[in-house]
Design a protein around this nucleic acid. Structure first.
Length: 141
RNA sequence: AAGGGGGGCGACUGCCGCAGUCGUCGUUUUGCGGGGCAAAACGACGUAGAGGAAAGUCCGGACUCCAAAAAGGAACGGUGCCGGGUAACGCCCGGGCGGGGUAACCCGACGGACAGCGCCACAGAAAUGAAACCGCUGCCGCAAAGGUCGGGCAACCGAAACUAGCGGCAGUAAGGGUGAAACGGUGGGGUAAGAGCCCACCACGCUGGUGGCAACAUCAGUGGUCUGGCAAGCCCCACCGGGAGCAAUGCCAAAUAGGGACCGGCGUGUCACCGCAAGGUGACGGGGAUACUUUUGCCCCCUGUCAGGUCCGGGUUGGCAGCUGUAGCUUGCGUCGUAAGGCGCAGGUCAGAGGAAUGGUCAUCUAAGGCGCAAAGCUUGCUUUGUGCUGGCACAAAAUCCGGCUUAUAGGCCUUCCGCGCAU
RNA sequence: GCGGGUAUGGUGAAAAGGUAUCACGGCAGCUUCCCAAGCUUUAGUUACGAGUUCGAUUCUCGUUACCCGCU
């Protein structure tokens, strides 16, 4: 894993995305490759009662201006119903907040937690996510 | 106790699918020199979008590949009262038998232990051919103590018979601290003591009659007791089953790659140019191309110094098909059937993708529940009425598709039935 | 998704229908001035729930957890 150069081409991202992202609105691309999640797990992260946020700033040559976001709910969260519910709520949080508050060129990963992600009030999740983003951006600067 | 059913109408915003054939409008990107065409992506509109168990993966199929002429057999595995239903089943329906419950009703791996083998620890006389042992009884032999009789004032002496006991012969299986289980049970007669030895009832086996398609039930006769238990031990009998699974499988593209080895067959299309030759290039010709019905054009590939057959690698990735509508499912009516279900007619039936889509914020209705408040009634801690707040809160997410089973399911609700209490 | 397998003291294993054994480790005691070694002793619902059987770790069914294979 450590022998892999960071400039490895990303097969999961279509080649036409970067040039388009500047022209159209800032729409986050969803992460699907396991390698992206592993890379993000080694970077800065902030925990809130409802979820954990990780942020990774990619290299400048790798699709600058593109915001990517991923969601993770392990089997610890619960059965398939609980995992799906947690992922949906995290997706809604990211959809509402990222276009206004995300920094281009970054990957964000949201991790669901057992119980709380599916049960906390939605407004609490939203405010926690904004706080977490502020902490992460401040840490990077 | 049985069955049904697992909220409705919506708003804003978001997710995902769509050959939406003749929806519309645009923008961007890629390929080719351009034109033009094709493909992809995005936005708006339209339209569709989780369950009764989608779950567990426990059975049965459809479908696909492998093997195979058909059929049979062996091994292995499964099923197991009888009849019916079904594409099929280990499922369902009806019946029988056994068990549970006051009842409604529920539960049952429910063939065979005289085909054979095996096991039954400990305890117990004995764990299955039955017999031995302790006992019980009769006869024979030996034989006390005590009692009886005789003698003696008494201590005591003597005599005969019986008995406990001991030994032998014979009868017997009633009884036997056990044990999960002891070759019938209870009662009576009988006997030296006993025994199905005899009798009545019950249980069991056999034979026959009757009812039933059958499982089985019932009646009569008979045997006098023989088959102790375990087959979710091996096994026997009857029936069923070839193996693997949509990550099956087929096609296309990229890539190592103009791959390598062998077999046997055939005998080098025409023209032009280059070359000493081997050979190369071009034209004509022939064939192919994941295709959707055809046509045309362009482009690409193969071949003409070989068509064909057999064998030999590991690693990596993308696209399309399979892919959702039928052995269908379901609603209504008719008809056959006790039922499961069958047949006929009419209607309804659009999730199908990438590791995978339904979320967020609200509103309202129908009722039930929960937490309160007030009033009334009394049965004094409940009921009724009014009112406020709360109010998708259970189990659980399609992944090829169907028929079942099993398991998980909140608050309750609806229909039918049973028991108990009270009132009439 | 499809298919297969395993659960026994704290750990690793055995038992093959008859009241669960071995090794290491833990607790306690003996021994020693103290420790180590040695000796003695102790702790299990055989993953959970049912069934067959007189009797189940063993046989059968269901549940849970974990592991493995297949693109």
């Amino acid at each position: 894993m450590t022998l892999t150069p960071p400039e490895t081409p990303q097969d999961g991202i279509p080649a036409n995305i970067p040039s388009k992202a500047s022209a159209v609105s800032l729409r986050p691309v969803t992460l699907t490759q396991r390698a992206d999640f592993l890379r993000a797990s080694r970077t800065a992260h902030t925990a809130t009662p409802g979820f954990v946020v990780q942020m990774r700033r990619r290299d400048a040559a790798d699709h600058p201006g593109l915001v990517r976001v991923g969601f993770t709910c392990s089997k610890k969260v619960g059965n398939a119903v609980a995992r799906n519910r947690a992922k949906r709520r995290l997706r809604e949080v990211a959809r509402l907040a990222l276009p206004d508050h995300a920094q281009p060129g970054c990957d964000y990963v949201l991790i669901g937690r057992k119980g709380t992600t599916a049960t906390l009030p939605f407004a609490t999740l939203q405010s926690d996510f904004l706080k977490a983003l502020a902490i992460l951006h401040g840490k990077k600067k």
